[in-house]
Amino acid sequence: MRNGVQLLKAECLKVFGDVKIYWLNYAFGNLNVFFMFLGLFYAFSKGSQDQLGKLTFLFGLMYWYFGVHAVDLMGLLMEEEIQQGTLEQLLMTRTPLSASLFFRIVAQTLFDLAKGVFVFAVCMWAFAINLSQILSLRFAASVAVFFIGLLAMYGFGYMIAGLSLVYKQASSIASVSSTLILFFSGTTIDIAAFPGIVQALVRLFPFYWSNALIEGILRLDGSGMARSGAVLLLELAAWTMGGIWTLHRCLRVVYDCGTAGNY
């Protein structure tokens, strides 16, 4: 536990060091996200009086933003470490790479969460979502599911991070996840509209089950909630184990080839 707190402190130190230097990039990046959220929210829910539908959609958008980050950030972080020459130092510390990577993404998520809460609040105000909706147990349960779904995406992120160690430009694959989560998670388009094969593929990813479960919880629709929850947990385990396994296999390749310091 103490170790975890210490690692989180270390990674927060690094994230804030980065923000200090690239504050203008961060500021405009955040502004971009803010306008995108407002635009998407307006386009997809204008005229709707369905308060729970709007809230579900907002959760979907949040999941899209954080999920994409969870995936591409891990790959980018690895590529950055190799480019800078710091990966070798990171590997030589007493902390396993998978642990430092996990806490770095947690630190980044905490940082993003601060602005996420702000954007969430602005969207709620701008689109007249009743405040009472968030002061409920259902909302708290939805937030918990949101984080479980996010955790499962970290597994995907580990996989990309591992591939980035070997193939260097693997983070570009991660950009695909941006479209996948936006259009194939059920947030913007009901997946029933897609061919069967696409539906089957979408169900392999945790974002679909996470969004389905959140919708079920918010609407108090018991049908399928147990199934969504069970598959989500199963996928959390599968993606996490698969991701860490991939990262370790790729690290082995790096040790064999001696490319931890080469880009």
Partner: peptide
């Protein structure tokens, strides 16, 4: 190994020492 490349450029000297110190327990 490659001294000048083994540190984080955007962190201060102390932040680098603190970061690696924490990772080393």
């Amino acid at each position: 190994l490659e001294g000048s490349r083994n540190i984080y450029y955007y962190l201060t000297a102390y932040e680098n020492l603190r970061y690696f110190g924490l990772l080393n327990g």
